[in-house]
C-alpha cells in the first residue's frame, strides 16, 4: 500500500471537517495526516491529507469525498507534479558537549534553531517527508525529547490549480 497526498477544496462551512473525518473513520480509511487552512477566498478552505491505501481504496476515497456536498474538488498531489512539504519542530537534548554537533547537522539540512535552553534545543525544519525522516534519523542519537509535525501540505506546480 502506498502513501497518497490528496488536496481538497471545500466550503468553509460548519461541520465540513467532521463530515470528512467521520467518513474516514466510518469506512475504515487510514489518514496519516491532515491539515486545514483558509484560501484566497473566504468561502472556501483547503484541506491536505495523506492516506495510505491501495489503488482501489484510493479510488473509493476520492469518490466518497466527492459525494460530500460541501466538497468541491478533490485532486491528488503527485510527486513531481506538486510541491509537498511538512513543517516539524523537534526538541532535542543538547548540552555544551553536543550542542554544536546538533547545530551542524541542522545546517546540513537547512533546519533552523528556534529555541535554545541549557539542556535542549528546538529545531525547525521544512521539507518533504523523506527529508524530514532523514533529519529525524540523524538527530535521534542525541535524544529527541518531543517533536510535532504539521502534516503535509502542498500545491500543484505550474499552470495547474484546483480552481476556486
Amino acid at each position: 500500500m502506498e502513501r497518497h497526498c490528496l488536496s481538497l477544496l471545500v466550503e468553509n462551512n460548519f461541520g465540513v471537517l467532521a463530515r470528512i473525518s467521520g467518513l474516514f473513520a466510518r469506512r475504515g480509511y487510514n489518514i496519516d495526516s491532515l491539515t486545514v487552512g483558509t484560501t484566497q477566498d473566504d468561502n472556501f478552505s483547503r484541506i491536505t491529507m495523506t492516506v495510505t491505501a491501495d489503488e482501489q481504496t484510493l479510488e473509493q476515497i476520492k469518490k466518497q469525498l466527492n459525494k460530500l456536498i460541501n466538497v468541491i474538488k478533490v485532486i491528488e498531489l503527485k510527486q513531481g507534479e506538486a510541491i509537498r512539504r511538512e513543517l516539524v519542530f523537534i526538541k532535542v537534548k543538547a548540552n555544551d558537549q553536543t550542542r554544536s554537533r546538533v547545530v551542524e547537522i541542522s545546517n546540513l539540512f537547512r533546519a533552523s534553531v528556534v529555541d535554545v535552553a541549557k539542556e535542549s534545543l528546538v529545531l525547525e525544519i521544512t521539507g518533504t517527508l523523506s527529508k524530514v525522516d532523514a533529519f529525524l534519523n540523524m538527530i535521534e542519537p542525541y535524544g529527541i525529547i518531543e517533536f510535532v509535525r504539521s502534516g503535509v501540505t502542498g500545491l500543484q506546480r505550474g499552470k495547474h490549480q484546483i480552481g476556486c
Binding site: Q56, E59, Q60, K63, Q64, N66, K67
Partner: peptide, 11 residues
C-alpha cells in the same frame, strides 16, 4: 448514478 457505487462492492 452514484459513481461511488461502481467498484465499491465488486472490484
Amino acid at each position: 448514478i452514484d459513481p461511488a457505487e461502481i467498484g465499491k462492492n465488486i472490484n
